[in-house]
C-alpha cells in the first residue's frame, strides 16, 4: 500500500476548522467592538502585549492563527475548484505556501514581543 500524504493536509485542516468555529467568532467580536469605538480593555497595548509576552499566550495566539490559516487555505482551495478554477496543483501550492509563510510570520512576530 502506498502511503498517502492526505493526513498531513487533513489533520491541521480539521483542527483548524474546530479552532475557527470555537475561537474566531469571539475574536471578530472583540476587534469589531474596537472598530465601533467600544474598545475592550483587553485590546489595549499594555494588556495585549502582556498576554503575547507570556509563553502560554504566545502558544495560544500561534495555535489559533496558524491552524486557522491552514484550514482557510485548504477550504479556499476547494472553493476555487468549486467555482471552476480547475488548476488544482497550482492553487493548492500557492495557498498552502501562503498559509505556511503566514504561520512562520506569526511565530516571528510573537517571538519579537
Amino acid at each position: 500500500m502506498t502511503k498517502s500524504h492526505k493526513p498531513v493536509v487533513w489533520f491541521p485542516f480539521a483542527a483548524g476548522g474546530t479552532v475557527i468555529a470555537f475561537c474566531i467568532p469571539v475574536i471578530v467580536v472583540l476587534t469589531f467592538l474596537a472598530a465601533l469605538g467600544h474598545m475592550p480593555a483587553g485590546l489595549s497595548y499594555e494588556r495585549l502585549h502582556a498576554f503575547a509576552a507570556n509563553g502560554v499566550g504566545k502558544l495560544v495566539l500561534f495555535g489559533v492563527i496558524s491552524l486557522s490559516l491552514w484550514s482557510s487555505a485548504h477550504r479556499l482551495r476547494c472553493t476555487c475548484y468549486d467555482f471552476g478554477l480547475r488548476a488544482d496543483t497550482l492553487v493548492a501550492t500557492v495557498l498552502y505556501v501562503a498559509a505556511i509563510l503566514g504561520g512562520i510570520a506569526a511565530a516571528l512576530f510573537l517571538l519579537r514581543i
Partner: peptide
C-alpha cells in the same frame, strides 16, 4: 472561507503591529 482567510491575514498584520 474567503472572509475567514482574509481575517486571519488581518490577525497576522495585527501581530506585526503589536
Amino acid at each position: 472561507s474567503i472572509f475567514i482567510g482574509a481575517y486571519c491575514v488581518l490577525l497576522v498584520v495585527g501581530l506585526q503591529r503589536l
